[in-house]
Amino acid sequence: MLGNGMIQGLLVTARNLLRSYFDPECLTTIQYPEERRTLPENSRCFPFLVYDGTPDNLRCVACKICEQECPPQCIYIEVERDAKTGKPVRRPRVFDIDYSVCMQCQICAEVCPFDAIKMDQIYELSGTDRFGGMLMNKGALLKSNEYYHQMHPTEANEVDARLSQSKKKASPPAAKPAAAPITLQSAPPPRPTPSAPPSPSVPPTPPVPPKSDV
């Protein structure tokens, strides 16, 4: 009968409409800003830097591997130099990631031999300044290991186990501070949950003037 197929199709839509009143499988959308989905543990967004304990004690040693490997080249690192001798110390003076260029590919986190850079889960970032607004400096990127544990618990436990093992192997002498603690321009307070809206208090850094020592 002509029209049979159309009637069948309409039955499908009717069935779906009725089912959507009591079957959550049929109603997959959520009211976004009020409701949020819980992200899976592996979910990734932009990279951040991990520190242990205090923000001075960051894991990054400014080896620049991530800078070389980053496919869109959004990482910019400068090594800190000792104020008296001028020798490089193993920590970054400048560590910038341009979130507007970053494509969340996780390669920096993969290649980092010190487990210093990891992937964040905050996805609600927007700005009005196209060039400087999404440029995150070291202060904005630093986040504690506890924050990392909250976000990716399994992965963080693995990383901790690996780090403590390598520490035992190396059995380092009493750690002495390598350099004077740097003052942070703006260390944002650790965010309580990954799904909280980002604090708008992260001021964008001024544009980096091109340095000649790269």
Partner: peptide, 11 residues
């Protein structure tokens, strides 16, 4: 398929 395959307009 029930929704579209047999639909006369689609055919």
């Amino acid at each position: 398929e029930a929704l579209i395959t047999g639909n006369e307009i689609l055919l």
